[in-house]
């Protein structure tokens, strides 16, 4: 797991971006916990960290695609990769797993 930020760095109910091991990731802090997904909406490249967040969903600010932060799935059929997050002693860690590459 890689250290991403301190807990205070992300305002409650919002998201912020970071590049970890070459991957652009959006980290979200919500009432139900911490989540990390791909930073860029697969639809038209919207910045998901700037979206509206609730318990465990984010809505892209450009065209309102909604993604479940637990699974990365969207009712539209689009999908983002979900990265495991852990908070220890006020610090936020993310596991950067690469998406499987098609053979």
């Amino acid at each position: 797991m890689t250290l991403a930020c301190r807990e205070d760095d992300v305002p409650p109910g919002e998201g912020r971006n970071i590049t970890l091991e070459g991957t652009r990731i959006a980290i979200f802090r919500t009432d139900t916990g911490w989540y990390a997904v791909d930073a860029v909406c697969p639809h038209r490249g919207g910045p998901l960290a700037d979206g509206i967040v609730c318990d465990h969903a984010v809505t892209c600010p450009l065209h309102d695609r909604a993604f479940d932060l637990r699974t990365g799935e969207s009712p539209s059929g689009d999908r983002v990769t979900v990265y495991p997050v852990e908070v220890r002693d006020g610090e936020v860690y993310v596991e950067v797993v690469r998406a499987p590459v098609a053979a």
Binding site: P11, G13, I52, V53, C54, D55, A57, T59, D64
Partner: peptide, 30 residues
């Protein structure tokens, strides 16, 4: 709480009913 889509509408309503003397929460805004 479920999808969050209505949070900006709710933020406006809270501010309007309280004559702008509400507690502002940026996560509810676009």
């Amino acid at each position: 709480r479920d999808c969050g889509a209505c949070k900006p509408a709710l933020a406006y309503l809270v501010s309007e009913v309280n004559d702008n003397r509400h507690r502002e929460e940026r996560h509810a805004r676009y």
